[in-house]
Structure formats: C-alpha cells, structure tokens
Write a protein that binds this DNA or RNA. Structure first.
Lengths: 143, 143
DNA sequence: TATTGTTATACTCTATAACTATA
DNA sequence: TATAGTTATAGAGTATAACAATA
C-alpha cells in the first residue's frame, strides 16, 4: 500500500497533557542513558541523592519522598547494598537506616553532575513565556 | 522509631525534569481513572482518537504517530477489535486498515469529552508566566 | 530489499495483598 | 493497633529479535 500522502492528523497534539507525557518520556530516556554510563538507573540515582541529603534515612521515608511504594523499595535498596553503594544499620527492631558508603557518595556526586548536565540541556527548551505546549513538543520531537 | 522531626530534604525538587515526571505521572493517573469508567486504557483511547481522525489508517501508522512499537500495537488493536470498537479490512496483502465501528465512534467521543474535562482541570495549574517548576509541582502535590 | 503484521520474550515500573516482627 | 520490612504476584508499558507474507 502506498504511504499516506499527508501526515496523520493527531488530535492529541491539541492536549497539553499529551505533550507533558511525551516530553517527560523523552527526558527520562535521555537521563536514563546518561546514568547508564554510571551503571545506575534513574530510580537508583534518585534514591542515592535522597540518602545523601538525609543520612540514616529509612526505606519507607525515601519511598514517601519519591512516591515509591514500600514493597518496591525492597529490591531497589537491596540492589544498592549489593553494589556496595549503601549500608544498612538497625535503628530499632523493625526499622533500618540507609547511609551512603564512600563509593556511594562518589557515585551520587557523579549522578548529580549528570542530572545537572541533563537539565542544562532541556531548560532552554522549557523556558520563556507562553507557548508551553509548543515548548513541550520541542522536547519530544528533538532527536 | 520516632518519626523524623523535619521533613526530608529532596534535592530532586530543584530539578524541573523531576517535576515534569511527577506532574506527568499524576496527570496520567487522573486520566486513566476517568477513562476507566469507559472501560478503556489511556493507550486504547489514544488509538481510538487517532483512528477517528484518520479513517482506514494502518497499525504501523498509528504506532508512528503515538510512539508505540509495531509489536506492541498488535495486542492493542486486537483488544479494540475484540471489544467491537474497531474493524479491520485488508488494504493489500500485507497491510490492514483500521476504522471505528459505530460503537467505537461513540466511545471515542466520550473519551475525548473525558480528555477535555481532564485538561480543563489541569490547564489553570500549568498556565501563567514563569514559575514552571512550581506549577508542575502543584500538579503532583494536589490531591 | 524493505515493509507489515506477527510471535515470543524480557525488563521496568507500578500496584495490591498478606505475612512477620516489632512499636 | 499501627508501622517497617518483606514476599509474592500481577498488570501495564516498553524493548528487541526473528519469522512469514508481500511490496
């Protein structure tokens, strides 16, 4: 079948929420790629940053701050410990505190650097007055 | 263990991309809930809207417009046909065209109505000049 | 050779329910 | 009773590789 002569009409492009989602997806993919060179996911780097700013924080508190369910924090925290980036100590009988190791602190600082570079790349596309929809679209259509 | 006296520090709140992601997630959850009463997912409703605006469009073309991989369009299109919302006709030996049934058109119109109501709810939070980070945060902190 | 649709598969993220041990 | 951590599980969404039929 011949290719359609005209580009498809996409009524969703009228919706700001659609562009918000596409822009968020494009930015997440870019950030994930930057962090992959540090061998951490976006979720892992986010947790490292929160622990770094709040030493001896509990898993549940991290989850509350980042909207990650307690159940989903378990393999995340386990992975960070397995990688030697985080140590866990008993706070009382039922709760544990997480703190960065020296390797974890170094990696967290590198991750923050990646995040700053990532943001510096996208901030100009988000800035300025008005035209939010167009600016969000520019993010997910940029190659 | 006693609750932390002060709220956690979250350095990610300095990042616009973080708020973009949280805002996108909050809006997607809201839209999904609105569409659930029509028994369609956000992806299904999106496909219905694109088919409605482009009768006799192929799966591959829809996928290109919505950034959905061909392989992932298969169960999506199958589900819409199973629900009687879409019919498929052979265009040539290898490509098929999708068109809304009458039920599909009715549901698509209801979905668009839900999307407009959804957007009307969030647009005021996104509007105005400057303070984008704060506006995005307002979206994901609103209950 | 390239494209369409398909199957199979896998990984991530997210979600709930239920259990334990502790407060 | 409520909370912290855990286990198991399930559903989305997304990704790749490979194949058959067809252009």
């Amino acid at each position: 079948m011949a290719a359609r002569a005209e580009p498809l009409k996409n009524p969703l492009e009228e919706r700001v929420g659609y562009h918000l989602r596409r822009a968020s997806g494009a930015m997440m993919a870019d950030l994930a790629q930057r962090l992959a060179s540090l061998d951490v996911t976006v979720a892992e780097a986010s947790v490292l940053v929160v622990i770094g700013a709040n030493p001896a924080v509990s898993q549940t508190e991290i989850g509350r701050a980042l909207a990650i369910k307690r159940a989903n924090m378990v393999p995340l925290a386990a992975g960070l410990m397995r990688k030697g980036l985080v140590v866990r100590k008993a706070a009382d009988g039922r709760s544990h505190t997480l703190t960065l190791t020296e390797a974890g602190r170094r990696l967290m600082l590198k991750a923050e650097k990646s995040m700053r570079a990532h943001e510096a790349h996208y901030l100009p596309l988000l800035g300025g007055d008005g035209g939010l929809r167009e600016r969000l679209k520019a993010i997910w259509t940029a190659r």
